[in-house]
């Protein structure tokens, strides 16, 4: 869809109506499916290849944009909610308890398939493929250059999809299917192998709520709503542009 067609003039929408509008855009653009394709692998080797690709360029890290959501936030209460979210993302173990960072959970998933830390360390230093590089840099740049409330609200695209019951169910069904596949492949600790996916299906619900809060409380002018529409759609288009 053309971004320019989305421009609105006049009154701002009530925030919940804006969210409904954008969820309708999501549903149409993705045909009701999840933001990132969820495939069922046909073989252990297919899983391994996907995981190796996932580590290239260390793009599983997220501090560069999650940190911007936090740092730019001008509302102290929302900023501290973003800090709490950053503890989930960057490691609850930073405060001595709970799960390690999401990049570490991704490593657990790779270890389960025999990928070593040495292999992962080497892949992390490699150049990102160009198409992935373009989206990753755009994502960080959007967070650096957008209004601070939009920084937080942009999570409505990725984490926010877990607030849609029909999409969350697709993710939970996918996890169950993977458990069966991994067991059939002889993976010993299937829960640990899927810790990254399981954690995201759960904690992203709370993180998605944070995005909704930002929209409801702060994205209430026509200009901000327009800017948010653009950021939402640009984020939605990752992997398709």
């Amino acid at each position: 869809m053309a971004i320019a067609e989305m421009k609105r003039e006049g009154e701002a929408l009530p925030p919940d109506q804006l969210i409904e509008e954008l969820e309708a855009v999501r549903k149409e653009f993705l045909s009701g499916k999840t933001l990132r394709p969820r495939n069922i692998p046909k073989s252990k080797d297919e899983v391994i290849q996907a995981k190796l690709r996932h580590h290239v360029g260390n793009a599983v890290q997220n501090h560069k944009f999650v940190g911007e959501k936090y740092l730019n936030c001008e509302d102290k209460a929302l900023r501290r909610m973003n800090l709490r979210k950053m503890v989930d993302e960057c490691g609850q173990t930073s405060v001595g308890v709970g799960l390690p960072s999401h990049p570490t959970l991704a490593r657990w998933g790779s270890h389960a398939f025999g990928i070593t830390d040495e292999e992962i360390n080497k892949l992390e230093k490699e150049d990102l493929p160009a198409d992935r590089m373009m989206w990753q840099c755009t994502k960080v740049n959007l967070h650096r250059t957008s209004h601070w409330a939009i920084d937080t609200a942009m999570s409505l695209v990725g984490e926010g999809e877990k607030l849609r019951p029909e999409i969350r169910q697709q993710l939970l069904d996918h996890i169950e299917a993977l458990k069966q596949e991994y067991t059939a492949m002889g993976i010993e600790d299937v829960e640990k192998a899927l810790a990254f996916e399981i954690e995201h299906a759960a904690v992203d619900v709370e993180h998605g709520e944070l995005a909704v809060t930002a929209v409801r409380k702060f994205i209430k002018t026509p200009e901000l709503q327009d800017e948010f529409r653009r950021a939402f759609i640009l984020t939605l288009q990752q992997g398709h542009a």
């Binding site: 260390n58 890290q61 501090h63 560069k64 940190g67 911007e68 740092l71 900023r79 501290r80 800090l83 709490r84 950053m86 503890v87 960057c90 490691g91 609850q92 173990t93 930073s94 405060v95 960072s101 990049p103 570490t104």
Partner: peptide
Amino acid sequence: IKSNDEATRTHILKKLVYLEGKDVV
């Protein structure tokens, strides 16, 4: 945000929690 070494970043995150209030967690 600039720290790509996870070990360092984890320490800084804890420092930030201490500054912003340990009650955040």
